[in-house]
C-alpha cells in the first residue's frame, strides 16, 4: 500500500516536472547528432554533413511538447 502510494507520488512528481520542462525548456539536444547539428565522417574528420533530423539546428522539441503542439493544431484546424 505504502509502496504504491510512494510510487504514485513519484510518478506524479515526475510527470509534473516533465510538463514544466515542456513549458520552460521545450527544446532538447538532437538525439541523432547529439546537439552538434552535423554528422562528421569517421574516416575524414574534416568532412561533415548536416543532421537531417534536426535540420542542422542541433535541437529537437521534447516529445511531450511535440504531442501537445499536434493536439493544439488539430484542435485549431477542426
Amino acid at each position: 500500500m505504502r509502496g504504491t502510494l510512494v510510487a504514485t507520488g513519484v510518478v506524479v512528481v515526475i510527470a509534473l516536472g516533465y510538463v514544466l520542462s515542456c513549458i520552460i525548456r521545450p527544446f532538447r539536444d538532437c538525439w541523432v547528432c547529439d546537439g552538434k547539428a552535423h554528422h562528421r565522417s569517421k574516416r575524414n574528420p574534416k568532412l561533415s554533413r548536416p543532421c537531417r533530423w534536426c535540420r542542422s539546428t542541433g535541437k529537437r522539441l521534447r516529445i511531450g511538447r511535440r504531442a501537445w503542439n499536434r493536439v493544439r493544431r488539430v484542435q485549431r484546424d477542426a
Binding site: 521545450p26 527544446f27 539546428t57 542541433g58 529537437r60 522539441l61 511538447r65 503542439n69 493544439r72
Partner: peptide, 15 residues
C-alpha cells in the same frame, strides 16, 4: 514569444 517559437518548432528563435 518563446512559447510561440516552441509552438512553431523554431529552435533558433527560442535560443
Amino acid at each position: 514569444l518563446r512559447q510561440e517559437a516552441a509552438n512553431k518548432n523554431d529552435p533558433h528563435t527560442w535560443q
